[in-house]
């Protein structure tokens, strides 16, 4: 399943990763090399094997749905590149 340049652009768009036209060919080559190597998993018969997302407990712990922390707007905003009062500032998104 070799990636076409259009697919590389589509993935970059999905990942919100700006990619220059000049980078496409290099990325296409690298990604295809990695994917080609990964193809070896196709040799295995995984019929009926249960997939696992991790190796911890089967079910994650539950906790009471209580407020245990908060009221720290200044700390939360302390690394914001741009802010307006107690809010993050972003470019206008609604006309």
């Amino acid at each position: 399943m070799a990636l076409e340049p259009a697919t590389v652009r589509r993935i970059a768009r999905l990942a919100r990763l700006g990619v220059d036209d000049t980078e496409i060919a290099r990325l296409q080559g690298e990604l295809n090399a990695i994917l080609g190597w990964i193809e070896q998993l196709g040799e295995l018969d995984v019929e009926g094997v249960e997939p696992i997302a991790g190796v911890g407990q089967a079910a994650l712990r539950l906790r009471p749905d209580l407020v245990t922390d908060g009221d720290k707007a200044d700390a939360v905003l302390s690394n914001a590149p741009d802010r307006a009062g107690r809010f993050y500032a972003v470019p206008k998104v609604v006309e």
Partner: peptide, 12 residues
């Protein structure tokens, strides 16, 4: 084809 298969191989 990729992620689900990898999760199964992880099981193995």
């Amino acid at each position: 084809a990729y992620y689900l298969r990898a999760q199964k191989v992880r099981s193995l």
